[in-house]
Design a protein around this nucleic acid. Structure first.
Length: 583
RNA sequence: GCGCCCGUAGCUCAGGGGAUCAGAGCAACCGCCUUCUAAGCGGUAGGUCGCAGGUUCGAAUCCUGCCGGGCGCGCCA
């Protein structure tokens, strides 16, 4: 149970009782009332702002409301103290037994502790990576992949019906360029001299493989043919090859998409026309002219009338073109169809994870979603800032395979998927990130992955030690039944309190769409666990396994197991398997 | 020129989204190893939360302006 929500419910009920008793006006809006841990634990276990928030609408002084409320809150089960602080805050203290009762919940739930039905099954579509199939995935994609995947897992854990989706940008001019670039490598594979890769084509060596495979499959049949003959076949072949390698890379990182949507297929199905018609019918399409951007006018700017979408009606800065000068759809038009299609598939809630270089695109896409869904759909966009790869402080630039960037595969080879996944989440998505390959694998406290894994390994170590000391069959039932009231040490109790915050942390992170919060919580939990461990070194009576006191040992093992479960629960969101030992 | 993001301790970053003293790690200094991994733990020192206003009983948190850095700005995706 999310005990903060539980207490918030109790506070709400007390306020309603007060209203019924005439101590407060009826019909007050209680939605701003919170129950949360105070910043300083010395203030108590839970603080509520109820009296402060209601003072104005109730036309009463905060302290008056607080005085009345405190009396009622003292009657709530588990509450041992309710005090007024400062201008009218109420600090609650809960009994140790109330806290210890969380232990049984954790032990029964195991790694599922923190799961909730917050989302009530609401479908959510999380679109991430969505890289063009024109080259291997690189570090920026890795960040998007990790953020998107963890966010999706987080939402699934909190009861949303999550679909992980990849939108394949396989319809534009870039894939034609890919086709031409591949054709060159195909010729090369058949023994022709191709010289330098011409400007405008992709020079990456990764296309050599693709060219060679094409030569193996088709032989020389495309040689000496006009481009219009070979381009479609070569392009499609290359897209398939690159998508396969992209899927392999994602697999290697533990990212598994539910749906791959092809832009090309979408266009061919007439989805763009359908979306366009919907906007048009709503009177949101017109022919007009745009001002050139100030300060930086493109040299080839040509003032002309074009087909525009009234995105300004939905908060965008200027209206946006949906057709190129040759009459074909813009990428934006296709992406409107993409989101329209998601909405029609049942997703009113959509999340896109993009690179920061697409930041200028957010407003128009959100505008489009509002327009095309009649206001029923909502799009949240998570922008991932730049990732720089360092090695011992030195910037790493070149990749063996790709030429100008570090590939995802390089990263995985260098530090492993688990480290990539966790480390990428130790920063907010909208803060730039320096990924240091040396630090990422260092075994020290400033390496958060290692530190959290070490804590989990230590929980396992305790279990092994306990078994060696004759404690066997330590299953959930035995640990749930253990005498938890024997846990009276301050370190033990504060660990329990931190564990009890987990469900709230998960829900808060899910609602904010911020998976990085999980990493910080896990780091704090690990820190407290290591600290408590060390107390046992200094004071033998605090060690987990006390052979002379079987009852106490079982209670402490229950706590250790609970710590392990919560770490597992958290790492599960990141898709990182917990370590059994660190050797 | 316009839009978005960022500006918190020497360094790298948190700060649950308004209120009860500004946090962590690293680096610096001082301590703790016969016992479950010292790959660790504890302590000291260090900040007018970019600047200036505003809203409020209360602002690192919300609003406005400015300064500094990043990203982007029809017919690329």
């Amino acid at each position: 149970m999310n005990l903060f929500r539980h207490i918030a419910g109790e506070i709400t009920r007390a306020l309603q009782d007060m209203a019924a008793a005439g101590e407060l006006p009826a019909g007050l809006d209680l939605s701003a009332v919170t129950a949360e841990p105070p910043r300083d634990p010395a203030h108590g276990d839970i603080a509520t702002n109820a009296a402060m928030v209601l003072a104005k609408p109730a036309r009463r002084k905060p302290r008056e409301i607080a005085e009345a409320l405190v009396g009622r809150l003292r009657q709530v089960a588990g509450v041992t103290a309710a005090d007024i602080a400062g201008p009218g805050f109420i600090n609650l203290r809960l009994s140790d037994d109330f806290w210890r009762a969380r232990l049984a919940e954790i032990l029964q739930a195991g790694a599922a502790y923190g799961d909730s039905d917050l989302g009530k099954g609401t479908p959510v579509n999380v679109e991430y990576v969505s890289a063009n199939p024109t080259g291997p995935l690189h570090v920026a994609h890795a960040r998007g992949a990790v953020v998107g995947d963890a966010l999706a897992n987080l939402l699934a854990k909190t009861g949303y019906g999550v679909t992980k989706e990849y939108y394949i940008n396989d319809a534009g001019a870039q894939v034609d360029t890919l086709g031409r670039s591949t054709y060159l490598r195909y010729q090369e594979a058949l023994g022709l001299q191709i010289g330098d890769i011409p400007e405008g084509l992709y020079p990456g060596e990764y296309l050599k493989d693709v060219g060679r495979k094409l030569a193996e499959r088709d032989g020389p049949k495309w040689l000496n043919q006009p481009e219009e003959i070979w381009l479609p076949a070569v392009r499609d072949f290359a897209i398939d090859e690159l998508m396969e390698s992209i899927r392999d890379d994602l697999d290697a990182m533990g990212v598994h998409m539910d749906v791959f949507t092809s832009e090309r297929a979408l266009v061919q199905s007439g989805a763009v026309e359908a979306a366009f018609k919907a906007l048009s019918d709503a009177g949101l399409i017109y022919q007009g002219r745009l001002e050139p951007p100030k300060g930086q006018k493109p040299d080839d700017w040509e003032d002309r009338e074009q087909t525009l979408f009234r995105s300004t009606q939905f908060g965008d800065d200027v209206d946006r073109p949906l057709k190129k000068s040759d009459g074909s759809w813009t990428y934006f038009a296709n992406d409107i169809a993409n989101h329209h299609d998601k909405f029609r598939r049942g997703f009113a809630e959509m999340i896109d994870v993009w690179g920061a270089d697409h930041g200028g695109y957010v407003k128009r896409m959100q505008a489009a979603v509002k327009a095309i869904t009649g206001g029923k759909g909502a799009l949240d966009v998570k922008l991932c800032q730049l990732v720089r790869v360092l090695k011992g402080g030195e910037l790493v630039r070149m990749s063996k395979r790709a030429g100008s960037f570090v590939t995802l595969r390089d990263l995985l080879d260098e530090v492993g998927a688990d480290v990539v996944r966790f480390t990428m989440l130790t920063r907010k998505n909208d803060a730039p990130f320096d990924f240091d390959l040396v630090k990422a694998t260092e075994q020290s406290r400033d390496n958060q992955v290692w530190y959290v894994q070490y804590a989990h390994a230590r929980t396992r170590s305790v279990m092994r030690q306990a078994a060696a000391a004759g404690f066997e069959g330590l299953d959930a039932a035995v640990l749930v039944a253990a005498r938890h009231e024997r846990l009276v040490d301050a370190g033990e109790l504060s660990l329990i309190k931190l564990l009890a915050q987990w469900p709230r942390q998960v829900e808060a992170a899910a609602q904010a769409h911020e998976p990085h919060r999980i990493a910080f919580y896990l780091y704090e939990l690990a820190s407290q666990f290591h600290a408590h461990w060390n107390r046992g070194k200094e004071d033998g009576s605090l060690r987990f396994v006390v052979e002379a006191d079987r009852e106490l040992t079982l209670a402490r093992i229950a706590l250790v197991q609970a710590v392990g479960f919560v770490i597992q629960s958290g790492l599960g969101i990141f898709g990182v398997p917990p370590a059994e030992e660190m050797r």
